[in-house]
Computed example of a mutant assay.
Amino acid sequence: MALNSLHDVYHDQLQDLYSSCKQSKPITSDLAEAATNSELKEALEAGVEGLETGMNDIAELCKRHDIDPDGEFCKGTEGLVKEARAHGIDADFGDNDTRDAMIASQYQRLAHYAIAGYGTLLAFAKRIGATDDVATLQKCLDSAYDGDRRMTEIATGGLNRAAAA
């Protein structure tokens, strides 16, 4: 697809973020499985649910704009997923607290990518007059921020302290 207008860029980025969510969901599930801290595990499981909701919401927006949600593959997320697997799942850790701290950091990298994507799409939707999309994108952005804030609270509330001990 030629990117000749902000509408075209918006459609491209909807597809890219759909791909990002699709790739992030399995690794987030794997991170949840590897986590030993119950609060971290619950937050990651909620993250999986949030990714599923985000995928459904973006798929609906793509349908509204008559584009295939699977029309792009997000290489940025591909790299983040490889990093999360290498550093949060496959790495050797001396203890579970250290692994949990790493898992939280890897999840937050994925969340920050989603925040950037949703924020950009929201700005584009407002600019091109896609007013029917704005509330959905705002909801997705708020959800991504909420997941990131929750992870920060878990990490700073004791997870990192336990890993440093």
Score class of each variant (00 low, 15 high):
I128Y: 00
H112F: 09
D66I: 00
M55Y: 02
E39M: 06
E72Y: 05
D66P: 00
R99H: 11
G94K: 14
A59C: 05
R109W: 00
A104L: 10
G47Y: 04
R99D: 04
Y107N: 11
D68S: 06
G117C: 11
Y113W: 04
T53N: 05
G88A: 06
Q106T: 12
I89W: 01
E60Q: 08
A104D: 12
C74A: 14
L137K: 08
R64T: 13
G129K: 11
F73E: 15
D97C: 02
D68R: 12
K41I: 03
K41T: 14
T136Y: 01
M102H: 09
S105M: 09
L137M: 07
R99C: 02
T120Q: 06
G50P: 14
L44T: 08
E52F: 10
G119V: 10
N96Q: 15
R85W: 14
N96L: 12
C62H: 03
R127K: 11
A116D: 06
R109I: 02
A46P: 01
G54C: 11
T131G: 08
L61K: 00
A84Y: 01
G47A: 10
R109E: 02
A116M: 12
N96Y: 14
E52T: 13
R127M: 02
E52D: 11
A101I: 13
A125H: 01
G71V: 04
K75R: 04
R109N: 10
N96D: 15
A101F: 04
T98M: 12
I115Y: 06
D92F: 10
K126L: 07
Y118N: 05
E49V: 14
C74G: 01
Q106A: 11
N56C: 01
T120M: 09
E39R: 09
A86W: 09
L44A: 12
M55H: 00
D68V: 05
D92P: 06
D57G: 11
I89G: 08
K75L: 01
T53R: 09
T120V: 13
L121C: 05
T98A: 12
L51W: 07
L137H: 13
G47N: 06
G54W: 04
D97L: 06
G47L: 01
P69R: 03
E78F: 11
L80M: 00
A86M: 14
Q108C: 00
D66Y: 01
